[in-house]
Design a protein around this nucleic acid. Structure first.
Lengths: 342, 342
DNA sequence: TGTTAGCACTCATTCAAATAGAGTGCTAAC
DNA sequence: GTTAGCACTCTATTTGAATGAGTGCTAACA
């Protein structure tokens, strides 16, 4: 791809056009730029420059006698070259993250926080893990029912009830627990193969039946965790704040995509590839994978909760989103998470 | 309130008007009714009757020279008197409910099922419980970290890690577990008072510190469960299928309301009061509590998972929703749940 | 007394034409 | 290289006329 380089004045004009367009959402005319930018030149000069910018594919006109709006490429140049980093500012008011026990609650909270702060739509994908088994606990919750608690990496907990099982004494349970944990802890699903399983069954002796039930339950727990990758969203209705997205057709498409978890996962997880220096990726318009989001931009960042729990958090908004603010907010959030969980 | 009673022909006309309007969403003229209903009278006669129905407040005209549309009162009469029960039919194709371990998964699944079947928006409120403590399990997940698993009624599970705790032997843990469970099991939060707490602390002896941590964690678990009453929705974007709801303003309002959990809880929980014989409630237009849903209707039913876990499930759609189908679907769903969980 | 045909009237919707206004491209002068 | 000026283009808004669905009312009819 050709590297586009603009001289200083063209850069200023492009930035002025985009900055104005971000605020108004209306095509920007040469007169406006001439009056409100700090390079004191007439509208005619601006027009000449604009023609050049249009030829370079950075600006476009919705119709002949209208002002200019940025193309996807224009936004791209803006994001890559013209945005001032303003990290300092955003750090002043820290986002209030509460420490919680359940991952889902934390994720939902983060999404809400992000949506409220940016006034766009936030989404967050749960960590995609190798999912190692961390701990298994058998216990007799009530007579006739054996409870199996399976703790997977990242404190994702699953629990199952085995009904109609024979009652075991606390001592018997303790023995089984130790047996299971000493063999299985730290193994991922692929490592729990037939060999390990048979060994456990043999060790179990007279508890062989129970052990079989328990093993199948563990398998189910890990497998289902591997399969689903939860995505949480918040502030979906913020898109109605932006007229260019809020007409029936588009809004419907976007909201439907937000409801379809699988699509989101795709959109977010491809985000890992094209990355900027600060770990933040920006996808503008047609750079998005999801068809119905081609009028949107997506800004993503990867978070790290430790224990290999790496996931993606992102903001979806109109192409004319306040990229500076969103990037700054995301960076602040990530940094804060790092402080809390390391 | 006056009891409205219609003679047979007026009833037929009202039903014909509403049935037609349900399908088209357009005002219904006298000619249409005259042609397509089975009471063979001229449009003029229909018009005369319509004037009466309008005077009674059951129909209205959007403007002078348009056909009639039902008022909220008209829908009310329709729902109360004119709907044929068609329970049989819907039972043929049973909804496919999978049995799952986690309540949230089940609820989400039910909502999705309901939304897909009705093509409206489904919502379901989690059971509002006394929340009794069912089981507590202490264990040493890894060195230096004590894991507390708290099982609340309905298999709602919370887990907490107590970091930096002293290591305990399996025997010590067993002792503590038995101590805690024999004292606390089956108590609700209001029953775990200072007396019980002190008794436990004293029993704990040298483990007093650990016990204190554990108790505070248990308290937190139950309290947070009591506070939050999760609501799941599905098919929110279905409202875009109905033009009268899908223009920007309204759609935004409705979707926002759907995102705000508290509002939904209000809407659903007031549903318990005004109940029809079959356990299903219908709220039409302004009968809804939520301002932004005054153009919608809400049909709710109460479900019962056993163990006192009673909650509400509902369908939101345009006022011209297919009440018969929705009511039948809901009844089928409830019945099926009863079969599965009793 | 209830039903029907006929007709004048109302009002939303649609379409085309006229108008206003924003903004450009181009040229010529500075 | 910059600027003023002007013709030109195209959208958005307004206006008015035509269309048509549907009503209300009256008078005739069974």
């Amino acid at each position: 791809m050709d590297e586009i380089q603009l001289d200083e004045r063209k850069g200023s004009i492009l930035k002025a056009v985009i900055d104005t367009y971000l605020k108004t959402g209306e095509p920007v005319g040469s007169r406006t730029i001439s009056k409100f930018s700090d390079l004191h030149v007439s509208s005619a000069t601006i027009r000449n420059e604009m023609v050049d910018l249009e030829e370079m594919g950075l600006l476009t006109q919705p119709h002949t006698s209208a002002g200019r709006i940025p193309t996807d490429l224009g936004y791209r140049y803006y994001v890559d070259h013209l945005i001032m980093e303003r990290e300092q500012e955003s750090r002043e008011h820290e986002l209030l993250i509460q420490k919680v026990d359940r991952m889902e609650v934390l994720m939902q909270q983060l999404a809400k926080l992000l949506a409220q702060n940016t006034q766009y739509t936030a989404m967050i994908a749960g960590p995609h893990l190798g999912k190692k088994l961390k701990y298994v606990q058998l216990s007799q919750a009530e007579p006739g029912k054996l409870m199996v608690v399976v703790v997977v990496e990242g404190n994702l907990i699953r629990n199952f009830m085995l009904p109609e099982s024979e009652d075991l004494t606390p001592e018997e349970l303790l023995g089984l627990n130790i047996m299971i944990n000493s063999t299985l802890n730290g193994l991922s699903i692929s490592e729990i193969n037939l060999g390990v399983i048979n060994e456990l069954k043999n060790q179990a002796g007279k508890y062989r039946d129970v052990m079989e039930d328990v093993l199948s339950v563990i398998g189910e727990a890990i497998r289902s965790e591997e399969g689903e990758q939860p995505v949480f969203t918040s502030g979906a209705t913020n898109i109605f704040k932006y007229p260019e997205l809020s007409d029936g057709e588009k809004a419907s498409g976007i909201l439907t995509a937000l409801e379809e978890q699988e699509q989101l996962v795709t959109a977010l997880s491809t985000a890992v590839n094209t990355e900027k220096a600060n770990g933040i990726s920006v996808y503008i318009g047609s750079e998005n994978r999801i068809e119905s989001m081609k009028d949107c931009s997506l800004v993503t960042a990867n978070y790290d909760f430790g224990e290999g729990m790496i996931g993606t958090i992102g903001v979806i908004g109109p192409k004319r989103m306040d990229y500076e603010k969103v990037v700054a907010t995301l960076m602040g959030l990530i940094e804060q998470l790092n402080k809390m969980y390391h």
